[in-house]
């Protein structure tokens, strides 16, 4: 699961900074993408294309790894054996996705160790939603259904992008996410159609997650020059607003059909434009959380560091004198 990979960079000057590229190579590169061909690891590519892809795939990988944390601690408290088995499988998938994505990013030249260090130091970002706590089982249900649904909208779009290794990883990821979504929907419907207490617990969780869900696709990026270039290169496949709209189109009805609703009286589809309107989701809070001040940022990174430190002796025990980092093939 993943979202909001296209956050504006902290330094707006960096956004417009481009390296002068050979115009002939650039034209060939663009022509290949326009023909619908994929770019592979050793192909020539513009420096900005490489940099933005590394950033995007790396953030995606971190989101998978950190995203497993709020759910992972619910494994032992899952209500019933079936839910527990599903949650174990889902969490393992998320970690697997993280590794597929780190491998895809490594083909662009950034070693996995460096990506993990950038995550631990707070330099690299991951999806903002994982900085919120999963207080009850209903929160896990909302994550499993709605956050995964939002991630699928994003990932399906990206899987049609131009970089071969990322597309291959996403193809596998999307197939597995289909199970995540179904098991999430199953758990969601179960609570919504259960006892009044279960229904109420689910509604309370939906209320807590509404803002992070609206934040998920990131702020409007329609005006960004940066975004336009990345869309021509098929790094970014749809604007943040379009993906958010697609998500609302698909999932608001699925939430409402079981008597649950989002806590926003302004959440309505404009019949003329086909666009969903909603109240201002407080983008200041979004930036606050991105910058490390969300309810769980410190905890998530501390847990990741804990895993890093406690796992070190295992890695050391397994290492051989021949263990050297290599760039994966494709």
């Amino acid at each position: 699961m993943y979202g909001g990979g296209f956050l504006p960079e902290e330094n707006p000057k960096k956004q417009t900074e481009t390296v002068a590229e050979d115009p002939a190579l650039l034209a060939d590169f663009q022509a290949r993408i326009d023909r619908g061909e994929k770019i592979e690891p050793h192909d020539w590519m513009p420096a900005m294309y490489r940099k933005q892809l590394i950033r995007m795939i790396e953030q995606h990988a971190h989101s998978e790894i950190i995203g497993a944390l709020p759910e992972g601690t619910w494994i032992t408290r899952a209500p019933g054996f079936r839910r527990k088995m599903a949650l174990i499988a889902k969490v393992q998938d998320e970690i697997g996705h993280g590794h597929l994505l780190y491998t895809a990013a490594e083909t662009l030249g950034k070693p996995r160790e460096q990506m993990i260090n950038d995550l631990l130091s707070g330099k690299s970002k991951y999806s903002n939603v994982f900085n919120y706590p999963a207080i009850t089982w209903a929160d896990v249900t909302v994550i499993g259904f709605l956050i995964d649904a939002a991630a699928i909208v994003n990932q399906l779009a990206n899987s049609k992008g131009s970089y071969g290794p990322y597309c291959r990883a996403l193809e596998r990821i999307c197939a597995e996410e289909a199970f995540h979504l179904k098991q999430g929907h199953d758990a969601f419907v179960y609570l919504a159609t259960g006892t009044p207490q279960q229904h109420e617990m689910l509604q309370a969780a939906v209320n807590r997650w509404y803002k992070p869900i609206i934040h998920f696709f990131g702020p409007s990026d329609k005006e960004s020059v940066h975004s336009e270039q990345l869309m021509r290169w098929k790094v970014k496949m749809a604007s943040n607003d379009d993906m958010r709209n697609q998500f609302l189109d698909m999932y608001v009805p699925k939430v409402r059909e079981v008597g649950i609703d989002f806590p926003d009286p302004n959440l309505k589809k404009d019949p003329e434009t086909g666009k969903w309107n909603f109240s201002d989701p407080d983008w200041d809070e979004f930036y606050e959380v991105i910058n490390g001040n969300g309810p769980c940022n410190a905890e998530r990174l501390a847990v990741r560091k804990w895993a890093e430190q406690k796992g070190r002796w295992v890695r050391q025990a397994l290492a051989t004198p021949y263990t050297k980092s290599t760039v994966p093939l494709a």
Binding site: T73, T76, T103, E106, P111, R112, E113, I116, N117, L120, S121, P133, I135, A298, E299, A302, V303, K305, W306, E308, Q309, R312, R315, L318, A319, T323, K324, S325, T326, V327, P328, L329
Partner: peptide, 28 residues
């Protein structure tokens, strides 16, 4: 910042940096 999660609250979470060394995650 104490975790709401009892499992996390019981861990002795590390302070400070945790740097992964080059090649620590092996080759492919």
């Amino acid at each position: 910042n104490k975790s709401l999660d009892p499992r996390i609250a019981r861990l002795e979470l590390p302070q400070g940096e945790s740097i992964v060394k080059p090649d620590e995650y092996w080759g492919t």
